[in-house]
Simulated assay, not measured.
Amino acid sequence: MKKELEKYFVIADTVQEANGDTCEVILYELTKSGSYVAYVANGTVTGQKTGEKSDYFVKQVLENKDFKDDHLSNYFFRTTDEKAVKSSSALLRDQDGDVIGMLCINMDITMLQNVNTMLMNYLKTDLEAGRNPGTGEHDVPQDVMAVIDKLIMSVIGSTDTRELSRSKCVGLVRLMDEKGIFLVKGAMDKVAELMGVSRVTIYSYLDEARGKKG
Rank of each mutant, 00 (worst) to 15 (best):
T46A: 04
K59N: 15
L72I: 08
V99T: 15
T31L: 07
C104K: 01
Y36T: 11
G43N: 00
L72G: 04
M102S: 11
E82S: 14
N106L: 04
G47H: 05
V61Q: 08
T50M: 01
V25H: 04
K53N: 07
T44R: 00
E82P: 04
A90P: 04
E29F: 06
D94R: 07
L92F: 13
K83C: 07
S89D: 10
R78M: 15
K86Q: 06
S35A: 14
V85W: 12
S88C: 14
K65F: 09
K83T: 08
E82T: 09
T50S: 00
G34Y: 06
K32P: 01
D96H: 14
V85R: 12
V99D: 09
F67E: 06
E63I: 07
G34Q: 02
T80W: 14
H71P: 01
D69V: 08
G43E: 03
D69N: 15
R93Q: 05
A90W: 05
Q60G: 04
V37L: 05
G43Q: 06
D81L: 02
S87H: 12
V85K: 14
L103W: 05
V37G: 01
A38L: 00
I100C: 09
V61C: 11
V45P: 05
T22V: 06
H71Y: 08
S54E: 04
S35D: 09
Y28E: 09
T44L: 00
V37D: 12
D98C: 08
T31K: 14
M102I: 01
V58D: 08
Y36D: 07
D70G: 08
C23R: 09
C104E: 10
E52C: 10
F57W: 09
S87Q: 08
G34E: 03
S35L: 02
G51E: 06
V25M: 12
A90I: 14
L72D: 07
S33C: 03
K65R: 10
A84M: 11
K83N: 11
I26F: 09
R93Y: 11
K86S: 11
G47Q: 09
Y56G: 03
E52A: 13
D94N: 15
D55N: 14
A90Y: 02
K53L: 02
H71V: 04
S35E: 02
D70F: 13
Y36Q: 07
Q48F: 03
D96I: 07
F67D: 05
D98G: 01
S54R: 04
S35Y: 02
T31S: 11
K86N: 11
D69R: 12
G43M: 06
F77P: 11
E82A: 13
S89F: 07
M107G: 04
F67Q: 10
T50V: 02
R93A: 13
T80L: 15
K83W: 00
I26T: 13
Y39G: 05
V85T: 14
N74Q: 12
E63K: 15
Y36K: 06
D96A: 14
S88G: 15
V45N: 10
V99R: 13
S54N: 09
V45D: 05
L30A: 08
V37A: 06
V58N: 05
L30P: 02
V25N: 13
D66G: 00
K68E: 11
T31W: 03
E82L: 08
T44I: 01
V45Q: 08
K49D: 08
G101V: 02
K86I: 10
